[in-house]
Computed example of a mutant assay.
Amino acid sequence: MTRSLSRAVVAEFLGSLLLAALVIGSGIAAQRLSPTDTGLQLLENAGATGVGLYALILVFGPVSGAHFNPVLSFVDAALGGLSWRHFLVYVPVQVVGCVSGAVVANVLFDAAPVSIATTSRATWAHGISEVVATLGLLLVIFSLSRTGRAEKAAAAVGAYIAAAYWFTSSTSFANPAITVGRAFSDSFAGIAPSSVPSFVLAQVVAAVIVLPLLSFLYPHRSN
Rank of each mutant, 00 (worst) to 15 (best):
V104C: 13
T36I: 13
P197W: 14
V103H: 09
A202Y: 08
L213F: 09
V157C: 04
A111C: 03
P113N: 15
G81I: 04
L18C: 14
A66P: 03
I141H: 09
F68D: 03
S187R: 04
F60W: 01
S169H: 11
T179R: 13
L14R: 04
P197M: 15
G127A: 15
V63D: 02
A102D: 08
F60A: 03
A150N: 06
G52A: 00
A11M: 03
I116M: 14
V103M: 10
T147S: 04
G190Y: 02
L217T: 14
A66Y: 01
L18G: 13
R221Q: 15
S172I: 05
S215C: 14
L201K: 11
A153S: 11
G136E: 13
R3T: 05
A11F: 00
E151K: 11
Y54A: 09
G25L: 00
R85F: 00
I116L: 13
R146K: 10
L56C: 07
L56D: 02
R146T: 05
L33A: 11
V104G: 10
S187G: 13
S34M: 15
V180Q: 02
A207I: 05
L138M: 11
N223S: 15
G181I: 10
V180C: 08
A66N: 04
H67E: 02
I24K: 01
L56N: 02
L42R: 13
A206N: 05
V91L: 10
A150G: 05
L211S: 12
P113Q: 15
P35I: 14
K152G: 08
I24E: 02
P212F: 15
I57H: 02
T49K: 14
T118C: 14
A174E: 08
T134L: 05
